[in-house]
Amino acid sequence: SLEEAIRRAEEALRKGQTFEYAGIRVTTQEALEKFRKWAEKQK
């Protein structure tokens, strides 16, 4: 689910890792916010 993907992205960010979902790379807090906004639109 998208909620699960967001949780995994947050977890990866805390560990300093890269999270990738549907071709979207989350490597920074800013990218995480963009990913969250994108995920909201997918619902």
Rank of each mutant, 00 (worst) to 15 (best):
E40R: 05
Y21G: 03
E40N: 08
K37A: 13
Q29A: 13
K15F: 09
L13T: 03
K37H: 11
Q42W: 09
W38K: 02
R25Q: 14
A9H: 01
T18D: 15
A9I: 06
E20L: 04
V26H: 02
Y21S: 03
E40T: 06
A5L: 15
R25M: 15
S1F: 13
K43M: 15
A39K: 02
R8P: 00
S1I: 12
F35G: 00
A39N: 02
Q17A: 09
T18R: 06
L32G: 00
Q29T: 11
E20S: 04
K37S: 10
A22T: 03
E40Y: 06
G16S: 04
E33R: 06
V26D: 00
A39R: 02
L13S: 01
G16Y: 03
F35A: 01
A9S: 02
E10M: 08
A31R: 03
R14S: 14
K15G: 08
E33Y: 04
K43F: 15
Q29N: 08
I6C: 09
I24K: 04
A12N: 05
E40M: 07
A22D: 13
E33L: 06
R7D: 05
E30H: 07
K37N: 10
T27F: 04
E30A: 12
S1N: 13
E33D: 13
K37G: 07
A12Y: 08
R14D: 08
R7Q: 11
E11R: 06
K15V: 10
W38C: 12
Q29E: 11
R8D: 11
R7W: 08
K37M: 12
G23Q: 04
E33T: 06
F35M: 06
Q29K: 12
K34T: 10
T18W: 14
Q42I: 14
R7P: 03
L32K: 01
L32E: 00
Q17T: 11
A5V: 14
G23D: 08
R14N: 10
E3I: 11
K43D: 09
W38F: 05
Y21A: 02
A9K: 00
E4N: 11
E30Q: 09
T18H: 13
W38V: 03
L2R: 03
R36H: 05
V26P: 00
V26L: 09
Q42R: 09
I6K: 01
V26I: 15
Y21K: 02
K37L: 11
T28C: 09
A5M: 14
R7T: 09
R25F: 14
E30G: 07
A39E: 02
Y21M: 05
E10Q: 07
L2S: 02
E4W: 09
K37I: 12
K41R: 11
G23E: 05
K15E: 11
L2G: 01
A22Y: 08
L13F: 09
I24V: 06
K15W: 08
K43I: 15
A22Q: 13
R7E: 10
L32M: 07
G16V: 01
Q17R: 09
R14C: 12
R7I: 11
L32V: 02
L13D: 00
E30I: 07
Q29D: 08
R8S: 10
K15S: 12
E33F: 04
R8E: 11
E3A: 11
Q17H: 11
E10L: 05
A12H: 06
T18F: 15
R25A: 12
Y21R: 02
K41E: 15
V26N: 00
Y21P: 02
E10R: 06
T27G: 12
A22N: 14
T28W: 04
F19A: 01
E33Q: 08
Q17F: 12
A22S: 08
E4S: 11
E11F: 00
L2K: 02
G23R: 02
A5W: 11
T27A: 14
A12D: 03
L13K: 01
E33K: 07
K37R: 13
S1T: 12
E4F: 04
R25T: 15
E11L: 04
W38M: 05
R14L: 11
L32W: 04
R36L: 15
W38D: 02
A9E: 00
E3Q: 11
Q29P: 12
R25S: 13
V26T: 01
A12Q: 06
A9V: 04
W38N: 02
A5I: 15
Q17V: 11
E4G: 10
R14V: 09
E30S: 09
I24G: 03
E11N: 07
R8H: 11
S1R: 13
R25V: 15
R36G: 02
W38T: 02
V26S: 01
K37E: 15
S1H: 14
S1A: 13
I24H: 12
F35Q: 00
E11H: 06
E10H: 05
E4R: 11
E20K: 03
T27V: 08
E20T: 06
V26G: 00
A39V: 15
A9N: 01
A31F: 05
K15T: 12
K41N: 13
A5S: 06
F19D: 02
R8V: 07
E11Q: 07
A12G: 03
I24R: 03
S1P: 12
G23T: 04
E3Y: 07
E20G: 01
E4K: 08
K34P: 00
E30P: 04
K34L: 14
R8G: 09
F19T: 01
Q42S: 08
F19G: 01
L13R: 02
L32D: 00
R8M: 13
E30F: 05
R36Y: 08
L13E: 00
Q17C: 12
Y21Q: 04
W38I: 04
L32F: 10
R14H: 09
R8T: 08
E30V: 08
K15Q: 13
K15D: 10
L13I: 15
A31W: 06
W38L: 06
E4V: 10
R36W: 05
R36T: 07
T28Q: 02
R36S: 03
Q42D: 06
R25W: 11
I6L: 10
A39T: 06
A9D: 00
Q42F: 10
K41F: 10
K43A: 13
